[in-house]
Design a protein around this nucleic acid. Structure first.
Lengths: 216, 216
DNA sequence: TGCGACATGTAAAAAGTTACATGATTAG
DNA sequence: CTAATCATGTAACTTTTTACATGTCGCA
């Protein structure tokens, strides 16, 4: 439902085309706001026009036809109303965190691959941080006092993340540690279940025909 | 696509029912991993069984029939393989951040509502942090060395967020600040556009019938 | 002349949510 | 006895993505 409000907000800053909106989400919203695809922007613009939130007018820039969208009074009102509603708590989809939480279940011995994942994340977050650090001085973005608060938040979050990654890599490069808490011994039990599934025991009807020596 | 891998990971830790999986996502994955609904878990379990990743067996606990799922060798292998793949960069949907970035567009004068939103966020994050702080000592959760790294990450992220909120509220309670950067004066222009849309100018055919004094 | 950025869309598929439908057991 | 929790599922709907389809302009 929030893609509609994001579009409302982008058009509020300046009248723009569907293409503009899509690209705005790509760089300005880097890491901060989810991306959108053309396949979702254009149909949404259409439906928002039907709802009377926006209206388009055609302009010609360098001989090329463009469909510019501007907010209607109803659109300005919808933006105002939405901003006044309590935001829902953020939802985060972090695959690295998910993999970390189940690493011992699938790759108990393999610390190197995890370190590799972490280093990859470090690079990407560092790049994003560099982008956010230069943003307020790039000379072309419009940033209000409020927007700047958001940028500072992302900067601090990324700095914290980078510090954590450094620390985590150091730990992973060191000695394996025992579980922090495992009251029902689920972790060793789980590793047994896994071994049983991957290397099923040989069922022998005649014990004398199968001994330890059979396994090569 | 990742809901499938999350299920794989939960079943890896111990055989469980569809209900178990759904609740596991609610509390264990609080803020860390996205939630799932029954309507998506049960059909997914069915399709994963068809793919041969999991298999079910019926058990009776306290006279109640349960459908327990366990990983097949193929399922263990799929988990192992997925863990080895580079995780994609996290996607975050943070409505507060989005509203912050467009606050001046819809509610330029209203700092109080924004402060209210921030305080609400602060409470929720504090609650989540408290949960994460007691998690490693709750006496029933299984936490490996790797899982603990993830928990530490979330703790540090939340602490950083809370510090930022404190600072941001202080700023919002103070004097309004000018834009940090607005090279094309988009912000004042935007406010003009908004005023024009909300209070359209009275078009007068006879200028003498409409003067400044008309407006009360 | 051909490539990359600009520009607008549609159709099918995938993914997930909400609401509905059902029923057993347990704690107060 | 009744509400909450445990337990399993379906159907309709919404949202979003992917892939396709088309075409222009500027530049090297």
């Amino acid at each position: 439902m929030t893609i509609e409000h994001s579009i409302l907000g982008v058009i509020a800053s300046r009248p723009c085309t569907g293409y503009d909106i899509k690209t705005e989400f790509e760089h300005e919203g880097a890491g901060m706001v989810w991306g959108v695809s053309f396949g979702s922007v254009y149909p949404k613009l259409k439906s928002m026009e039907e709802q009377g939130l926006i209206q388009n007018y055609r302009t010609e820039t360098k001989g090329r036809m463009k469909k510019m969208y501007e907010l209607t009074p109803k659109g300005w009102e919808a933006l105002h109303k939405w901003l006044g509603e309590l935001p829902s708590y953020p939802s985060i989809k972090d695959e690295l965190l998910l993999k970390l939480s189940m690493w011992d279940r699938g790759r108990p011995e393999d610390r190197q691959t995890l370190i590799y994942h972490m280093k990859n994340r470090k690079e990407q977050s560092q790049e994003l941080l560099d982008y956010y650090l230069q943003w307020p001085q790039n000379g072309h973005s419009s940033i209000s006092e409020f927007g700047m608060l958001g940028i500072q938040y992302v900067q601090e979050r990324l700095e914290t993340e980078l510090r954590w990654i450094e620390k985590a890599i150091l730990q992973l490069e060191g000695e394996p540690q025992p579980p922090v808490q495992d009251p029902y011994d689920l972790i060793p039990k789980q590793q047994e279940r896994r071994n049983l599934a991957i290397n099923p025991p040989v069922i022998t009807v005649h014990p004398e025909s199968s001994t330890d020596e059979d396994r090569v």
